[in-house]
Design a protein around this nucleic acid. Sequence first.
DNA 1: CCCGCGATTTGCT
DNA 2: GCAAATCGCGGGC
Length: 210
Amino acid sequence: MTNKTNHSILPVDFYEQPTLELAKSLLGCLLVKKTADGTASGFIVETEAYMGPLDRAAHSFGNRRTKRTEVMYGMSGLIYTYVMHTHTLVNVVSGGIDNPEAVLIRAVEPYSGLELMQERRGIADIRKWTDGPGKLTKALGITMEDYGQSFTAPPLYLAAGKQPEHISSGPRIGIDNTGEAKDYPWRFWVTGSPYISRTIKKRMMPSPSK
DNA sequence: CCCGCGATTTGCT
DNA sequence: GCAAATCGCGGGC
Protein backbone atom coordinates (compact mmCIF):
# COMPACT_ATOMS: atom_id res chain seq x y z
CA MET A 1 0.00 0.00 0.00
CA THR A 2 2.73 2.41 0.85
CA ASN A 3 4.37 4.03 -2.07
CA LYS A 4 8.02 3.92 -1.19
CA THR A 5 9.23 6.11 -3.96
CA ASN A 6 8.77 9.86 -3.93
CA HIS A 7 7.12 10.84 -7.15
CA SER A 8 6.43 14.51 -6.58
CA ILE A 9 4.64 16.50 -9.27
CA LEU A 10 7.00 18.46 -11.50
CA PRO A 11 6.76 22.26 -11.00
CA VAL A 12 5.74 24.56 -13.83
CA ASP A 13 9.28 25.91 -14.28
CA PHE A 14 10.41 22.41 -15.30
CA TYR A 15 8.70 23.08 -18.62
CA GLU A 16 10.44 26.39 -19.16
CA GLN A 17 13.52 24.96 -20.84
CA PRO A 18 14.27 24.81 -24.56
CA THR A 19 12.06 22.23 -26.26
CA LEU A 20 14.90 19.94 -27.32
CA GLU A 21 16.21 19.98 -23.74
CA LEU A 22 12.72 19.34 -22.41
CA ALA A 23 12.28 16.38 -24.75
CA LYS A 24 15.37 14.80 -23.18
CA SER A 25 14.50 15.84 -19.63
CA LEU A 26 11.10 14.16 -19.94
CA LEU A 27 12.75 10.76 -20.38
CA GLY A 28 12.47 8.90 -17.09
CA CYS A 29 9.66 11.09 -15.77
CA LEU A 30 6.51 9.44 -14.51
CA LEU A 31 3.31 10.00 -16.48
CA VAL A 32 0.28 9.45 -14.25
CA LYS A 33 -3.44 9.32 -15.08
CA LYS A 34 -6.19 9.03 -12.48
CA THR A 35 -9.63 7.86 -13.55
CA ALA A 36 -12.73 6.49 -11.89
CA ASP A 37 -11.40 3.01 -12.58
CA GLY A 38 -8.12 3.68 -10.80
CA THR A 39 -4.67 5.12 -11.37
CA ALA A 40 -2.14 3.99 -13.94
CA SER A 41 1.34 5.32 -14.63
CA GLY A 42 4.54 4.73 -16.55
CA PHE A 43 8.04 6.12 -16.99
CA ILE A 44 8.54 8.00 -20.24
CA VAL A 45 11.08 6.20 -22.44
CA GLU A 46 10.59 7.92 -25.81
CA THR A 47 9.75 11.46 -26.97
CA GLU A 48 9.78 13.59 -30.10
CA ALA A 49 10.21 17.36 -30.38
CA TYR A 50 8.05 19.49 -32.68
CA MET A 51 9.71 22.81 -33.25
CA GLY A 52 6.84 25.12 -34.07
CA PRO A 53 6.38 27.51 -37.00
CA LEU A 54 9.58 26.47 -38.83
CA ASP A 55 9.00 22.73 -38.48
CA ARG A 56 7.08 21.39 -41.43
CA ALA A 57 6.00 18.35 -39.43
CA ALA A 58 4.48 20.39 -36.62
CA HIS A 59 0.78 21.16 -36.55
CA SER A 60 1.78 24.74 -35.80
CA PHE A 61 3.94 25.03 -38.92
CA GLY A 62 3.69 28.54 -40.35
CA ASN A 63 1.97 29.68 -37.16
CA ARG A 64 -1.17 27.82 -38.13
CA ARG A 65 -3.65 28.60 -35.41
CA THR A 66 -6.85 26.59 -35.16
CA LYS A 67 -9.12 25.26 -32.48
CA ARG A 68 -6.96 22.15 -32.39
CA THR A 69 -3.57 23.86 -32.21
CA GLU A 70 -4.71 26.70 -29.96
CA VAL A 71 -3.29 25.15 -26.81
CA MET A 72 0.20 25.10 -28.35
CA TYR A 73 0.20 28.90 -28.13
CA GLY A 74 -0.42 28.76 -24.41
CA MET A 75 2.02 28.32 -21.55
CA SER A 76 4.50 25.47 -21.36
CA GLY A 77 3.31 22.46 -19.41
CA LEU A 78 -0.20 22.34 -20.85
CA ILE A 79 -1.64 19.13 -22.30
CA TYR A 80 -2.12 18.86 -26.06
CA THR A 81 -4.13 15.78 -27.00
CA TYR A 82 -4.88 15.03 -30.59
CA VAL A 83 -6.80 12.30 -32.41
CA MET A 84 -5.11 10.33 -35.17
CA HIS A 85 -7.41 7.87 -36.92
CA THR A 86 -8.78 5.86 -34.00
CA HIS A 87 -6.03 6.83 -31.59
CA THR A 88 -5.37 9.66 -29.15
CA LEU A 89 -1.84 11.09 -28.95
CA VAL A 90 -0.53 13.19 -26.09
CA ASN A 91 1.95 16.09 -26.17
CA VAL A 92 3.56 18.43 -23.68
CA VAL A 93 3.23 22.07 -24.74
CA SER A 94 6.59 23.81 -24.77
CA GLY A 95 8.31 26.97 -26.00
CA GLY A 96 6.34 29.42 -23.88
CA ILE A 97 3.44 31.73 -24.73
CA ASP A 98 2.97 32.35 -28.47
CA ASN A 99 5.83 30.01 -29.35
CA PRO A 100 3.90 26.89 -30.39
CA GLU A 101 6.33 24.03 -29.81
CA ALA A 102 5.55 20.65 -28.26
CA VAL A 103 6.96 17.29 -27.24
CA LEU A 104 5.13 14.12 -28.25
CA ILE A 105 5.23 11.30 -25.73
CA ARG A 106 5.80 8.19 -27.85
CA ALA A 107 6.31 5.41 -25.31
CA VAL A 108 6.35 4.67 -21.58
CA GLU A 109 7.45 1.81 -19.33
CA PRO A 110 4.46 0.51 -17.30
CA TYR A 111 4.91 1.24 -13.58
CA SER A 112 1.67 1.18 -11.61
CA GLY A 113 -1.90 0.16 -12.29
CA LEU A 114 -0.66 -2.83 -14.27
CA GLU A 115 -3.92 -4.78 -14.04
CA LEU A 116 -5.85 -1.78 -15.26
CA MET A 117 -3.51 -1.34 -18.20
CA GLN A 118 -3.72 -4.98 -19.20
CA GLU A 119 -7.50 -4.83 -19.05
CA ARG A 120 -7.57 -1.73 -21.26
CA ARG A 121 -5.13 -3.21 -23.79
CA GLY A 122 -6.54 -6.73 -23.82
CA ILE A 123 -3.26 -8.48 -24.50
CA ALA A 124 -0.86 -10.39 -22.26
CA ASP A 125 2.53 -9.07 -23.38
CA ILE A 126 3.46 -6.11 -21.15
CA ARG A 127 5.91 -4.86 -23.75
CA LYS A 128 3.08 -4.13 -26.13
CA TRP A 129 0.89 -2.16 -23.72
CA THR A 130 2.57 1.21 -24.05
CA ASP A 131 5.21 0.96 -26.81
CA GLY A 132 3.61 3.52 -29.09
CA PRO A 133 1.90 6.92 -28.80
CA GLY A 134 -1.58 5.54 -29.49
CA LYS A 135 -1.08 2.52 -27.27
CA LEU A 136 0.06 4.37 -24.16
CA THR A 137 -2.92 6.71 -24.19
CA LYS A 138 -5.26 3.73 -24.32
CA ALA A 139 -3.39 1.91 -21.55
CA LEU A 140 -3.37 4.96 -19.26
CA GLY A 141 -6.85 6.17 -20.13
CA ILE A 142 -5.78 9.48 -21.67
CA THR A 143 -8.52 11.06 -23.81
CA MET A 144 -9.51 14.33 -25.49
CA GLU A 145 -11.00 15.35 -22.14
CA ASP A 146 -7.44 16.02 -21.00
CA TYR A 147 -6.94 18.61 -23.76
CA GLY A 148 -5.95 22.05 -22.43
CA GLN A 149 -5.41 20.91 -18.84
CA SER A 150 -2.04 21.18 -17.11
CA PHE A 151 0.53 18.46 -16.45
CA THR A 152 1.09 20.03 -13.02
CA ALA A 153 -2.16 18.73 -11.50
CA PRO A 154 -4.35 15.60 -11.53
CA PRO A 155 -6.03 13.83 -13.17
CA LEU A 156 -3.20 13.77 -15.74
CA TYR A 157 0.18 14.88 -14.46
CA LEU A 158 3.93 14.38 -14.65
CA ALA A 159 6.07 13.50 -11.66
CA ALA A 160 9.75 12.96 -10.92
CA GLY A 161 10.83 9.46 -11.89
CA LYS A 162 14.22 7.95 -12.46
CA GLN A 163 17.28 9.15 -14.29
CA PRO A 164 17.90 7.31 -17.59
CA GLU A 165 21.35 5.75 -17.81
CA HIS A 166 21.87 6.75 -21.39
CA ILE A 167 19.87 8.66 -24.01
CA SER A 168 19.86 7.98 -27.75
CA SER A 169 18.55 10.23 -30.51
CA GLY A 170 17.55 9.87 -34.13
CA PRO A 171 15.13 11.01 -36.84
CA ARG A 172 11.46 11.24 -36.02
CA ILE A 173 9.04 8.50 -36.97
CA GLY A 174 6.11 8.77 -39.34
CA ILE A 175 7.28 12.06 -40.82
CA ASP A 176 7.39 11.96 -44.59
CA ASN A 177 7.78 15.59 -45.50
CA THR A 178 10.40 17.20 -47.70
CA GLY A 179 11.31 19.88 -45.19
CA GLU A 180 14.93 20.34 -44.28
CA ALA A 181 14.12 19.18 -40.76
CA LYS A 182 13.05 15.70 -41.72
CA ASP A 183 16.40 14.14 -40.83
CA TYR A 184 17.03 16.14 -37.68
CA PRO A 185 17.58 13.90 -34.63
CA TRP A 186 14.55 15.16 -32.76
CA ARG A 187 13.45 11.77 -31.47
CA PHE A 188 14.88 10.78 -28.10
CA TRP A 189 14.70 7.50 -26.23
CA VAL A 190 16.16 5.64 -23.27
CA THR A 191 18.95 3.51 -24.71
CA GLY A 192 18.16 -0.17 -24.50
CA SER A 193 14.61 0.18 -23.19
CA PRO A 194 12.39 -2.70 -24.36
CA TYR A 195 9.40 -0.36 -24.36
CA ILE A 196 10.28 2.05 -27.16
CA SER A 197 7.93 2.16 -30.14
CA ARG A 198 10.34 0.92 -32.76
CA THR A 199 13.66 -0.80 -32.52
CA ILE A 200 16.52 1.04 -34.10
CA LYS A 201 16.52 0.46 -37.79
CA LYS A 202 19.85 -0.11 -39.40
CA ARG A 203 20.25 2.58 -41.99
CA MET A 204 23.65 1.54 -43.32
CA MET A 205 22.33 -1.58 -44.98
CA PRO A 206 23.90 -2.16 -48.39
CA SER A 207 21.21 -1.79 -50.99
CA PRO A 208 20.29 -5.11 -52.55
CA SER A 209 21.58 -5.56 -56.07
CA LYS A 210 19.05 -4.34 -58.50
C1' DC B 1 10.71 -10.91 -38.22
C1' DC B 2 9.39 -7.69 -41.93
C1' DC B 3 6.25 -5.59 -45.07
C1' DG B 4 1.75 -3.74 -46.73
C1' DC B 5 -2.94 -2.43 -46.08
C1' DG B 6 -7.37 -0.73 -44.10
C1' DA B 7 -9.79 1.52 -40.23
C1' DT B 8 -11.75 6.09 -38.70
C1' DT B 9 -11.67 11.08 -36.52
C1' DT B 10 -10.47 15.71 -37.29
C1' DG B 11 -9.62 19.82 -39.67
C1' DC B 12 -8.14 22.19 -43.82
C1' DT B 13 -8.42 23.03 -49.24
C1' DG C 1 -12.61 15.09 -50.43
C1' DC C 2 -8.15 14.33 -48.72
C1' DA C 3 -4.18 13.47 -45.70
C1' DA C 4 -2.52 12.44 -41.21
C1' DA C 5 2.87 12.81 -35.36
C1' DT C 6 -0.93 5.10 -35.74
C1' DC C 7 -2.25 0.34 -34.87
C1' DG C 8 -3.25 -4.48 -35.66
C1' DC C 9 -3.67 -8.04 -38.76
C1' DG C 10 -2.40 -11.21 -42.40
C1' DG C 11 1.00 -13.19 -45.58
C1' DG C 12 5.70 -14.23 -46.97
C1' DC C 13 10.44 -15.63 -45.73
